[in-house]
């Protein structure tokens, strides 16, 4: 049997903007990232038609995983309609011929910047998170070669020092996003700048999460049913944002992560950060037949 008979022709991979060798490389890196949860796998981040720092890492993974029958959702800090999210979604749709959606439950591939949707993801869905800075040790170890040694040694004591300093100076943990989390009990990762509210959604989730940093050329992953534990002190429990009692001024929904809208009189309004989730609730309230998926949080508490 010849090698050519065992492999598919290269043309089968040449689809969705990236060339076949790029896709092969990124797929192999993704497989390695899945095999070693939380480990940052280097890859040759390509040029894509958006600027570095605007989601190039996420876009490359999305394009690599794209199939003609994919249903793609792109969100930017919870919003489907931001310029960045819309541009990426249209680009993916144009080069891949895929279906665009804002509905989390319908999407098979979700690229996100800084949020995880409120509706629970399933085994058949993949979440791609854009990551600006993949290295959780950077605040304590600016020398990246030493930081990699520390990862190899699972030497993470200094990360607790950051939390210690926050508790001493502010009386509480001030890490609002990119909360360092232990994956599968081995590697500490930064779960991209998602809020603390979203970190528990990664723990033993049904879906696969792939995190990609285009500038830093690193891919890492949280496979399904893998533990993701935020670093905490024994006597200082992990706390999510106090949004349990906030109500969305547009949809009236309570118990989910909100955006705060400061008002001229000094007060604040709140609206659902997950914009399409809010739209669904508004439509449902208006009598439309809308299917709202199961949510991670119920009554403002993580439902597990």
């Amino acid at each position: 049997m010849k090698l050519s008979e065992l492999t598919r022709p290269w043309s089968a991979f040449s689809y969705g903007f990236l060339d076949e060798s790029a896709k092969r490389e990124i797929r192999r890196r993704i497989l390695k990232a899945i095999a070693v949860p939380g480990y940052q796998v280097p890859y040759a981040s390509r040029e894509v038609p958006i600027a570095r720092g605007w989601g190039t890492g996420g876009l490359q993974v999305t394009l690599t995983l794209l199939k003609p029958d994919a249903v793609v959702k792109v969100i930017d800090q919870g919003a489907d309609d931001s310029v960045n999210a819309s541009s990426i979604r249209k680009f993916v749709s144009r080069v891949g011929g895929t279906v665009e959606t804002g509905d989390t439950t319908q999407a098979t591939l979700i690229q996100s910047r800084h949020r995880i949707p409120e509706e629970k993801l399933r085994e058949d869905q993949i979440l791609v998170l854009q990551v600006p800075n993949p290295e959780p040790l950077r605040p304590v170890q600016p020398d990246m070669s030493v930081a990699r040694e520390m990862h190899a040694d699972a030497d993470y004591g200094q990360l607790w020092l950051i939390l210690y300093e926050q508790l001493v100076r502010s009386g509480r943990i001030m890490q609002g996003a990119s909360y360092p989390s232990m994956v599968n009990g081995r590697h500490v990762m930064t779960p991209s700048p998602i809020p603390r509210w979203d970190v528990p959604k990664l723990n033993r989730a049904d879906h696969l999460t792939i995190l990609s940093a285009g500038r830093e050329k690193r891919i890492y992953a949280v496979p399904p049913y893998t533990s993701v534990e935020p670093l905490v002190f024994d006597d200082v429990p992990y706390r999510v944002e106090d949004h349990q009692d906030k109500a969305c001024w547009r949809s009236g929904v309570r118990g989910f992560f909100m955006n705060e809208l400061p008002q001229e009189d000094g007060s604040s309004l709140y609206e659902l950060s997950d914009s399409h989730f809010g739209i669904k609730h508004i439509r449902k309230a208006a009598g439309e037949a809308v299917s709202i998926g199961e949510t991670w949080y119920r009554n403002g508490r993580m439902a597990r």
């Binding site: 030497d155 004591g157 020092l161 210690y164 002190f233 024994d234 006597d235």
Partner: peptide, 13 residues
């Protein structure tokens, strides 16, 4: 505290 943290102490108090 850093030294204690490296040694594995995880209790803030």
């Amino acid at each position: 505290a850093e030294r204690l943290l490296i040694a594995g102490n995880r209790n803030f108090a």
